[in-house]
């Protein structure tokens, strides 16, 4: 990951007057999808880059050591070796960016990745994921335990109540405390955008999170009714850019929830390139939170290399 975001004092003045025009954002989202495309080798290369940005995720009630173990091995070998070899990409260290699990499964993931002999970080959701309706005290404790168990990245989720009631100082204060609890672990801040009421709130919450020291801002838990949509992403990356222009600190962006197709992944990469530039196309500043996305990317790569459409059983499952 890149240099940490030290955060800033809370500066409400700079965001109080911001108004995001939703129709304009939606039009921009449509334009990004229709105006840019990558084909052939470019598509394959971009998809491989997308793979390296994936936080390969399982967040289910029925997670057990065995499926966590499988997930970790898939993280290390996201694309079939022979397919990578055909593109001369087998020795380029293509793995996913991280695996992402619940706090109670961090230890399983750390163990599995160690066994697989790789240095892929484990990310843990925390702070009463997904609803964040647990006491602050237990939220902080949850972070500390996950870090103790070996999580190097913590995906905290913000308190939507504070946003919807306009308590920006309270929000800043909470996230700031989360950040301290994270210690050396990088903090991704999930906004739960589907529950924030407006794009203007999405922008403001993004800015407050970054001021409070978020290393990444992330769209959704994947459990809200509306997750990572392109308009939300546009607003959040604009906030990332504005924060960078203001402070010189680069904060990463992670769309998560509902990203399933290789085409979706390309669209998100295009958005990052257009709005923030090439620097934000690497895992230190860009992540895709996804569970089934990888399977579709691998199938597209299979098709690119072989000219045939793959059956799901042609490719190892996560």
């Amino acid at each position: 990951m890149s240099a940490r975001n030290p955060g800033t004092e809370l500066d409400l003045g700079s965001i109080s007057r911001v108004q995001v025009n939703q129709p304009a954002v939606i039009r921009h989202a449509e334009q990004i999808q229709s105006r840019r495309t990558v084909k052939k080798d470019w598509q394959a290369a971009w998809l491989l880059r997308a793979v390296t940005c994936i936080d390969l995720t399982t967040l289910s009630g029925d997670d057990t050591p065995s499926n966590i173990h499988r997930l970790c091995y898939k993280a290390k070998h996201p694309i079939r070796e022979d397919l990578l070899r055909a593109m001369n990409m087998h020795d380029k260290g293509i793995t996913t960016a991280a695996v992402c699990v619940y706090p109670a499964r961090v230890a399983d993931a750390v163990k599995a990745l160690k066994a697989a002999g790789c240095n892929i970080p484990v990310a843990s959701v925390a702070t009463g994921f997904p609803a964040a309706q647990t006491p602050l005290k237990t939220k902080l404790e949850e972070i500390r335990i996950a870090v103790e168990d070996g999580a190097r990245e913590i995906d905290i989720v913000i308190n939507r109540t504070l946003v919807l009631t306009g308590q920006w100082e309270g929000l800043y204060e909470e996230i700031h405390q989360f950040r301290q609890a994270c210690g050396d672990a990088h903090m991704k801040t999930i906004l739960g955008t589907g529950e924030l009421g407006s794009l203007t709130n999405v922008y403001k919450a993004s800015m407050v999170a970054m001021m409070a020291g978020a290393d990444f801002i992330k769209t959704s838990t994947g459990k809200e009714a509306v997750n990572a949509t392109l308009p939300v992403g546009i607003v959040m990356v604009r906030a990332v850019r504005d924060f960078y222009w203001k402070t010189g600190n680069k904060v990463g962006f992670k769309p998560a929830g509902g990203i399933r197709s290789a085409k979706d992944a390309l669209t998100w990469l295009i958005l990052m390139k257009e709005e923030l530039g090439d620097e934000w196309l690497k895992p230190d500043l860009f992540r895709l939170g996804a569970s089934t996305l990888l399977a579709d990317i691998e199938r597209q790569i299979y098709h690119h290399v072989t000219g045939r459409y793959a059956a799901y059983h042609d490719l190892p499952m996560a």
Partner: peptide, 23 residues
Amino acid sequence: MAGAAGGRPSVWDIYSSMEYGPA
């Protein structure tokens, strides 16, 4: 196939530069 000759960038080249290609 990737990495062909004739000045065409390889998959690795594109992967590294993240340029847009022709469409």
